[in-house]
Amino acid sequence: MIKLKRHPLNPLISPVPQHHWESKYVFNCAVINRDGVFHMLYRAQGEDMVSRIGYAVSLDGLRFNRFEKPVFTPGSQWELYGVEDPRLTELEGKIYMQYTAYSPQGIRISMASTLDFLRWERYGVIIPDIDNKDAALFPKKIRSHYVMFHRIEPEMYLAYSDDLDSWSKFTSIAGPRPGMWDNLKIGVGAPPVETEYGWLVLYHGVENTPRPTYRLGFMVLDLENPEKVIKRSDEPILEPEEEWEIFGGVPNVVFSDAMVEHEDNYFIYYGAADNHIAVATIEKETVLDWIRS
Protein backbone atom coordinates (compact mmCIF):
# COMPACT_ATOMS: atom_id res chain seq x y z
CA MET A 1 0.00 0.00 0.00
CA ILE A 2 1.40 3.40 -0.96
CA LYS A 3 0.26 6.83 0.17
CA LEU A 4 0.81 10.37 -1.01
CA LYS A 5 2.35 12.92 1.34
CA ARG A 6 0.66 16.30 1.71
CA HIS A 7 2.96 19.30 1.48
CA PRO A 8 3.15 21.50 4.60
CA LEU A 9 2.39 24.64 2.54
CA ASN A 10 -1.12 23.36 1.78
CA PRO A 11 -3.50 24.67 0.75
CA LEU A 12 -1.59 26.39 -2.06
CA ILE A 13 -4.42 28.44 -3.54
CA SER A 14 -7.68 29.63 -2.01
CA PRO A 15 -10.53 31.95 -3.06
CA VAL A 16 -9.90 35.69 -3.40
CA PRO A 17 -12.88 37.67 -2.06
CA GLN A 18 -11.89 40.74 -4.13
CA HIS A 19 -12.07 38.82 -7.43
CA HIS A 20 -15.70 38.38 -8.41
CA TRP A 21 -14.94 35.34 -10.59
CA GLU A 22 -13.03 33.36 -7.89
CA SER A 23 -14.49 34.69 -4.66
CA LYS A 24 -16.22 31.46 -3.54
CA TYR A 25 -14.30 28.41 -4.79
CA VAL A 26 -11.00 27.51 -6.46
CA PHE A 27 -10.33 23.84 -7.22
CA ASN A 28 -9.61 21.11 -9.81
CA CYS A 29 -6.50 22.33 -11.62
CA ALA A 30 -4.30 21.22 -14.50
CA VAL A 31 -0.54 21.70 -14.17
CA ILE A 32 2.26 21.24 -16.67
CA ASN A 33 6.00 21.83 -16.33
CA ARG A 34 7.67 23.48 -19.33
CA ASP A 35 11.36 24.35 -19.17
CA GLY A 36 11.33 24.57 -15.39
CA VAL A 37 8.17 26.68 -15.10
CA PHE A 38 5.00 25.22 -13.62
CA HIS A 39 1.88 26.44 -15.43
CA MET A 40 -1.44 25.95 -13.64
CA LEU A 41 -4.95 26.32 -15.03
CA TYR A 42 -7.60 26.06 -12.35
CA ARG A 43 -11.37 26.09 -12.07
CA ALA A 44 -12.90 28.96 -10.11
CA GLN A 45 -16.38 30.15 -9.16
CA GLY A 46 -17.67 33.44 -7.82
CA GLU A 47 -21.06 34.63 -6.62
CA ASP A 48 -22.67 33.84 -9.99
CA MET A 49 -21.43 30.20 -9.66
CA VAL A 50 -20.26 30.16 -13.29
CA SER A 51 -17.02 28.22 -13.66
CA ARG A 52 -14.10 30.04 -15.27
CA ILE A 53 -10.46 29.06 -15.63
CA GLY A 54 -7.68 31.01 -13.96
CA TYR A 55 -3.93 30.88 -14.55
CA ALA A 56 -0.98 30.78 -12.17
CA VAL A 57 2.77 30.18 -12.56
CA SER A 58 5.51 28.91 -10.26
CA LEU A 59 9.22 28.13 -10.36
CA ASP A 60 9.11 25.49 -7.63
CA GLY A 61 5.66 23.98 -8.07
CA LEU A 62 4.58 25.25 -4.65
CA ARG A 63 4.45 29.04 -4.62
CA PHE A 64 2.20 30.25 -7.42
CA ASN A 65 1.61 33.77 -8.74
CA ARG A 66 -1.92 34.21 -10.05
CA PHE A 67 -3.34 36.37 -12.80
CA GLU A 68 -6.08 38.70 -11.61
CA LYS A 69 -8.45 37.81 -14.46
CA PRO A 70 -9.47 34.43 -15.87
CA VAL A 71 -7.71 33.29 -19.05
CA PHE A 72 -10.52 31.05 -20.33
CA THR A 73 -14.21 31.84 -19.97
CA PRO A 74 -17.50 30.49 -21.37
CA GLY A 75 -17.64 31.04 -25.12
CA SER A 76 -20.66 29.16 -26.49
CA GLN A 77 -24.18 27.97 -25.69
CA TRP A 78 -22.64 24.71 -24.48
CA GLU A 79 -20.80 26.68 -21.77
CA LEU A 80 -23.55 28.83 -20.27
CA TYR A 81 -22.96 27.37 -16.81
CA GLY A 82 -19.21 27.29 -17.13
CA VAL A 83 -15.98 25.67 -18.25
CA GLU A 84 -14.79 23.05 -15.79
CA ASP A 85 -11.97 20.72 -14.71
CA PRO A 86 -9.17 21.34 -17.24
CA ARG A 87 -6.52 18.76 -18.07
CA LEU A 88 -3.38 19.61 -20.05
CA THR A 89 -1.34 17.51 -22.47
CA GLU A 90 1.66 18.66 -24.51
CA LEU A 91 1.42 17.02 -27.91
CA GLU A 92 3.14 17.81 -31.22
CA GLY A 93 4.24 21.30 -30.20
CA LYS A 94 0.95 22.48 -28.69
CA ILE A 95 -0.67 22.40 -25.27
CA TYR A 96 -4.11 20.80 -25.52
CA MET A 97 -6.73 21.36 -22.87
CA GLN A 98 -9.63 18.97 -22.40
CA TYR A 99 -12.38 20.44 -20.27
CA THR A 100 -16.03 20.01 -19.43
CA ALA A 101 -18.56 22.35 -21.00
CA TYR A 102 -21.65 22.72 -18.81
CA SER A 103 -24.99 24.12 -19.96
CA PRO A 104 -28.73 23.44 -19.76
CA GLN A 105 -28.09 20.95 -22.58
CA GLY A 106 -25.88 18.83 -20.32
CA ILE A 107 -22.17 18.20 -19.83
CA ARG A 108 -19.87 17.67 -22.80
CA ILE A 109 -16.17 17.15 -23.44
CA SER A 110 -14.62 20.13 -25.20
CA MET A 111 -11.09 20.98 -26.29
CA ALA A 112 -8.88 24.00 -26.87
CA SER A 113 -5.16 24.50 -27.54
CA THR A 114 -2.59 27.17 -26.77
CA LEU A 115 1.05 28.09 -27.14
CA ASP A 116 1.21 30.61 -24.28
CA PHE A 117 -1.73 29.80 -21.91
CA LEU A 118 -3.28 33.22 -22.66
CA ARG A 119 -4.48 32.89 -26.26
CA TRP A 120 -6.64 29.91 -27.12
CA GLU A 121 -7.86 28.11 -30.22
CA ARG A 122 -11.22 26.54 -29.48
CA TYR A 123 -12.37 23.27 -31.06
CA GLY A 124 -15.73 23.11 -29.30
CA VAL A 125 -17.51 19.94 -28.23
CA ILE A 126 -15.58 16.91 -29.48
CA ILE A 127 -17.90 14.12 -28.30
CA PRO A 128 -21.50 15.25 -28.94
CA ASP A 129 -24.85 13.70 -28.08
CA ILE A 130 -23.95 12.19 -24.71
CA ASP A 131 -23.24 13.47 -21.22
CA ASN A 132 -19.52 12.95 -20.73
CA LYS A 133 -16.58 14.34 -18.75
CA ASP A 134 -13.17 13.52 -17.21
CA ALA A 135 -11.28 13.68 -20.52
CA ALA A 136 -7.49 13.57 -20.89
CA LEU A 137 -5.22 13.02 -23.90
CA PHE A 138 -2.32 10.59 -24.02
CA PRO A 139 0.95 12.46 -24.67
CA LYS A 140 1.71 10.53 -27.86
CA LYS A 141 0.00 8.42 -30.49
CA ILE A 142 -0.47 4.72 -29.92
CA ARG A 143 -0.59 2.51 -33.02
CA SER A 144 -0.92 5.64 -35.18
CA HIS A 145 -4.00 6.89 -33.30
CA TYR A 146 -4.56 9.67 -30.82
CA VAL A 147 -6.02 8.24 -27.61
CA MET A 148 -8.17 10.00 -25.03
CA PHE A 149 -9.69 9.03 -21.71
CA HIS A 150 -13.30 9.96 -21.03
CA ARG A 151 -16.00 8.95 -18.59
CA ILE A 152 -19.49 7.74 -19.42
CA GLU A 153 -20.78 7.23 -15.92
CA PRO A 154 -19.90 5.12 -14.03
CA GLU A 155 -16.96 3.70 -16.05
CA MET A 156 -13.65 4.93 -17.47
CA TYR A 157 -13.41 4.77 -21.28
CA LEU A 158 -10.90 5.26 -24.08
CA ALA A 159 -11.66 6.85 -27.44
CA TYR A 160 -9.52 6.96 -30.58
CA SER A 161 -9.02 9.53 -33.34
CA ASP A 162 -7.01 10.10 -36.50
CA ASP A 163 -7.28 13.89 -36.39
CA LEU A 164 -8.18 15.03 -32.81
CA ASP A 165 -11.59 16.02 -34.19
CA SER A 166 -13.67 12.89 -34.71
CA TRP A 167 -13.56 10.32 -31.91
CA SER A 168 -14.78 6.72 -32.08
CA LYS A 169 -14.31 3.18 -30.75
CA PHE A 170 -15.48 4.00 -27.25
CA THR A 171 -14.09 1.22 -25.07
CA SER A 172 -14.69 0.75 -21.35
CA ILE A 173 -11.43 -0.20 -19.62
CA ALA A 174 -12.37 -0.09 -15.94
CA GLY A 175 -15.37 0.43 -13.71
CA PRO A 176 -16.48 0.56 -10.08
CA ARG A 177 -15.52 -2.36 -7.84
CA PRO A 178 -18.26 -3.63 -5.48
CA GLY A 179 -17.35 -3.44 -1.82
CA MET A 180 -14.29 -1.24 -2.39
CA TRP A 181 -13.40 2.44 -2.05
CA ASP A 182 -14.34 3.10 -5.70
CA ASN A 183 -17.66 1.24 -5.80
CA LEU A 184 -19.87 4.02 -7.23
CA LYS A 185 -18.01 5.56 -10.20
CA ILE A 186 -14.49 6.29 -11.42
CA GLY A 187 -12.79 8.73 -13.80
CA VAL A 188 -9.32 9.62 -14.96
CA GLY A 189 -7.38 12.19 -12.98
CA ALA A 190 -4.30 13.42 -14.80
CA PRO A 191 -3.12 12.55 -18.32
CA PRO A 192 -1.07 9.35 -18.12
CA VAL A 193 2.68 9.23 -17.50
CA GLU A 194 4.77 6.79 -19.52
CA THR A 195 7.02 4.44 -17.53
CA GLU A 196 9.03 1.43 -18.64
CA TYR A 197 6.39 -0.80 -17.04
CA GLY A 198 3.29 0.79 -18.54
CA TRP A 199 1.16 3.93 -18.52
CA LEU A 200 0.84 5.24 -14.97
CA VAL A 201 -2.68 6.62 -14.58
CA LEU A 202 -3.97 8.67 -11.68
CA TYR A 203 -7.72 8.28 -11.21
CA HIS A 204 -10.47 9.19 -8.79
CA GLY A 205 -12.93 6.78 -7.29
CA VAL A 206 -16.18 7.53 -5.50
CA GLU A 207 -17.59 5.44 -2.68
CA ASN A 208 -21.34 5.09 -2.35
CA THR A 209 -21.81 6.50 1.14
CA PRO A 210 -24.52 8.87 2.50
CA ARG A 211 -22.17 11.69 1.48
CA PRO A 212 -20.19 10.21 -1.43
CA THR A 213 -16.45 10.30 -0.78
CA TYR A 214 -13.90 11.05 -3.53
CA ARG A 215 -10.47 9.43 -3.22
CA LEU A 216 -7.44 8.95 -5.50
CA GLY A 217 -5.72 5.82 -6.75
CA PHE A 218 -3.32 4.55 -9.40
CA MET A 219 -3.75 2.12 -12.24
CA VAL A 220 -1.21 0.90 -14.78
CA LEU A 221 -2.08 0.25 -18.43
CA ASP A 222 -0.16 -1.70 -21.05
CA LEU A 223 2.04 0.57 -23.19
CA GLU A 224 0.93 -0.88 -26.54
CA ASN A 225 -2.63 -1.79 -25.57
CA PRO A 226 -3.92 0.75 -23.04
CA GLU A 227 -7.23 -1.11 -22.85
CA LYS A 228 -5.38 -3.71 -20.76
CA VAL A 229 -5.21 -2.88 -17.04
CA ILE A 230 -2.07 -4.34 -15.50
CA LYS A 231 -2.49 -3.12 -11.94
CA ARG A 232 -4.87 -1.02 -9.83
CA SER A 233 -4.79 0.38 -6.30
CA ASP A 234 -6.46 -1.86 -3.75
CA GLU A 235 -6.43 1.04 -1.30
CA PRO A 236 -6.65 4.79 -2.02
CA ILE A 237 -3.40 6.73 -2.20
CA LEU A 238 -5.10 9.90 -0.91
CA GLU A 239 -8.42 10.47 0.82
CA PRO A 240 -10.09 13.36 2.65
CA GLU A 241 -8.52 13.76 6.08
CA GLU A 242 -7.80 17.45 6.61
CA GLU A 243 -10.64 19.69 7.76
CA TRP A 244 -10.44 21.69 4.51
CA GLU A 245 -10.83 18.44 2.52
CA ILE A 246 -13.79 17.20 4.52
CA PHE A 247 -15.81 20.44 4.79
CA GLY A 248 -16.48 22.77 1.85
CA GLY A 249 -18.58 23.42 -1.21
CA VAL A 250 -18.68 19.67 -1.87
CA PRO A 251 -17.60 17.80 1.28
CA ASN A 252 -15.33 14.74 1.46
CA VAL A 253 -13.49 15.35 -1.80
CA VAL A 254 -9.95 15.08 -3.06
CA PHE A 255 -10.07 15.37 -6.85
CA SER A 256 -7.04 15.66 -9.12
CA ASP A 257 -6.48 16.66 -12.74
CA ALA A 258 -2.68 16.98 -12.57
CA MET A 259 0.35 14.77 -11.98
CA VAL A 260 3.75 16.31 -12.75
CA GLU A 261 7.16 14.63 -12.76
CA HIS A 262 9.60 16.84 -10.86
CA GLU A 263 13.11 15.69 -10.06
CA ASP A 264 12.63 12.34 -8.29
CA ASN A 265 8.99 12.86 -7.34
CA TYR A 266 5.49 13.05 -8.68
CA PHE A 267 3.64 16.23 -7.69
CA ILE A 268 -0.10 15.57 -7.59
CA TYR A 269 -2.28 18.68 -7.45
CA TYR A 270 -5.84 18.31 -6.24
CA GLY A 271 -9.00 20.17 -5.40
CA ALA A 272 -10.05 19.87 -1.75
CA ALA A 273 -13.80 19.89 -1.03
CA ASP A 274 -14.17 22.25 -4.04
CA ASN A 275 -12.73 25.05 -1.86
CA HIS A 276 -8.95 24.99 -2.24
CA ILE A 277 -6.05 23.67 -4.32
CA ALA A 278 -3.38 21.56 -2.65
CA VAL A 279 -0.48 19.30 -3.59
CA ALA A 280 0.71 15.91 -2.41
CA THR A 281 3.88 14.11 -3.45
CA ILE A 282 5.35 10.66 -3.76
CA GLU A 283 8.79 9.45 -4.79
CA LYS A 284 8.91 8.00 -8.30
CA GLU A 285 10.90 5.00 -7.10
CA THR A 286 8.19 4.19 -4.55
CA VAL A 287 5.61 4.07 -7.34
CA LEU A 288 7.86 1.96 -9.56
CA ASP A 289 8.41 -0.47 -6.68
CA TRP A 290 4.63 -0.78 -6.32
CA ILE A 291 4.24 -1.46 -10.03
CA ARG A 292 6.96 -4.13 -9.94
CA SER A 293 5.63 -5.85 -6.81
Rank of each mutant, 00 (worst) to 15 (best):
D163V: 10
R232P: 01
R122V: 03
I268T: 02
D35N: 14
P226F: 06
E79P: 08
F170W: 11
P139C: 10
V253T: 13
S144L: 04
V57A: 10
F64K: 04
I107H: 08
A136T: 02
M148D: 04
E227T: 15
I282E: 03
Y160W: 13
W120F: 15
M180N: 06
Y55F: 12
D274W: 00
P154E: 06
T100C: 14
D234A: 12
L238M: 11
F117H: 10
V26I: 13
H20Y: 13
F247R: 12
N65L: 14
V201E: 03
Q105A: 14
L200T: 01
H150G: 04
L216E: 01
R119F: 08
S51L: 09
H276N: 14
G189C: 09
G248P: 02
F138T: 03
S168N: 13
T213N: 05
D257V: 01
G205T: 04
D162A: 10
I127A: 03
A280D: 03
V57W: 03
M259V: 07
N183W: 07
E153V: 13
I237E: 02
W181S: 09
S166W: 07
P11F: 08
S144V: 01
K228M: 11
I53H: 05
S110T: 10
V254C: 07
D162S: 13
V254T: 11
L223I: 14
T73V: 15
A135N: 02
D35C: 01
V26S: 07
A30E: 00
Y55K: 06
I291L: 10
A56V: 05
K228F: 08
K3N: 15
G61E: 04
S51M: 06
Y81N: 15
A101V: 04
P236W: 08
G205E: 06
D289R: 15
K133W: 00
P240K: 02
K133P: 05
I152A: 11
V125N: 01
E22H: 06
G217V: 06
L238T: 03
H7E: 11
P210T: 05
Y269M: 05
P15A: 04
V193N: 00
S256Y: 04
S51A: 15
G205I: 01
E242C: 03
E242R: 09
R215C: 10
T195V: 05
H204C: 08
S76Y: 10
L216A: 05
I32Q: 02
L200D: 04
Y197D: 15
N225D: 15
P226E: 09
W199N: 01
S76W: 10
A136H: 04
N33S: 13
E235I: 14
E90V: 14
S51Q: 11
W244I: 02
M111I: 02
I32E: 09
E92M: 07
F27D: 01
M148W: 08
E207H: 06
S103D: 07
P191C: 06
R34H: 12
S23N: 13
E261F: 00
I13H: 04
D289L: 11
I230F: 11
R151F: 03
K284H: 08
V260T: 08
